[in-house]
């Protein structure tokens, strides 16, 4: 059943992201020419904020190893556009007061700030903390220090939850509608452990309550930029879909229902019709 003309995702793992064009993944028609990231004019982010997003997403999804990193996927462009648009303005969310930003996390988003404001305030606050802790803004730290700082930020977000007693959903992942799909991971940005113990023993939190969702938003939006359709500015050349083996917007698989354990042979398509 294997179609030898079409590379499987395992073959792609060896090819690596940098080899996208060279290893035979020619788009059906070329995507719009893209502005190199260092020449991109952000719509929402300031220069310093852009530097932070470039540096932070590069650690959240690093470039080395198999598959594209956030930078090759152009995740920073996705985040900038997203924050400039309705998502950044919390256009769909109920934002009337009174607000209780320190509420039990079971009740979710309770800050008066929009996501755009959380990024603005969160980046500034985190950079300040990095200067105090490591002597430089996040973007200027070594990758080791950046990872340690992100771990501390993650732990800080977890502590914001623990401060309020048993956090909701402790030990449980989203159990979805049909009960039996593997539990989703999206949006569970703060769920990982603090592995290298970078958190200093201070009880002072890095983020105030109004900004406590910063880390979760950053991780979630980074993954969204990595995996969403390329029309949103990220997932450049659908490289993340190729990497994991997701066929994108194909959306027609009846003939594959009974093909047990046979990797799907066709590469992804995007909503605008590109192929990879």
């Amino acid at each position: 059943m294997k179609n030898i003309l079409i590379p499987t995702r395992r073959a792609f793992l060896q090819a690596g992201a940098a080899g996208v064009a060279a290893s035979g993944f020619q788009p059906l028609w070329a995507q719009e020419p893209v502005v190199p990231l260092d020449q991109y004019q952000p719509e929402f982010l300031s220069g310093a904020e852009w530097s932070f997003i470039m540096a932070a997403t590069a650690r959240l999804i690093p470039s080395d190893g198999d598959g594209p990193g956030a930078i090759e996927a152009r995740v920073p462009v996705f985040i900038d556009r997203d924050l400039a648009g309705p998502f950044g303005q919390a256009a769909d969310w109920y934002m009337e007061g009174p607000h209780e930003p320190g509420a039990n996390p079971d009740f979710g988003y309770q800050t008066p700030l929009t996501p755009a404001e959380i990024y603005r305030g969160g980046i500034a606050r985190f950079d300040e903390w990095c200067v105090a802790e490591y002597g430089a803004a996040f973007a200027d730290l070594s990758t080791e220090s950046q990872d340690a700082a992100l771990n501390a930020l993650e732990t800080d977000a977890e502590r914001a939850e623990e401060a309020l007693g048993p956090a909701a959903g402790e030990g449980e992942q989203a159990t979805n509608e049909t009960a039996a799909s593997p539990a989703g991971q999206g949006g569970q940005g703060g769920a990982g452990g603090n592995e290298n113990g970078a958190q200093t023993q201070t009880t002072v939190r890095i983020m105030p309550d109004e900004l406590r969702d910063f880390f979760a938003l950053l991780v979630q939006n980074t993954k969204e930029g990595y995996f969403s359709d390329p029309k949103y500015g990220g997932n450049h050349q659908m490289a993340s879909w190729v990497y994991i083996g997701f066929p994108g917007a194909r959306a027609s698989f009846l003939e594959w229902v009974d093909k047990d354990n046979i990797p799907y042979p066709l590469g992804p398509v995007s909503i605008n019709g590109e192929r990879a």
Partner: peptide, 30 residues
């Protein structure tokens, strides 16, 4: 048991203990 979708933003499931970001996460999704 049901198989409803393979959408990567919301339905990508990784073994317990896998970090939710960084090199380990990226290896995990592959």
């Amino acid at each position: 048991n049901s198989q409803t979708n393979g959408q990567p933003i919301r339905s990508l499931s990784l073994p317990e203990g896998t970090k939710t970001w960084g090199a380990e996460w990226k290896r995990g999704i592959g």
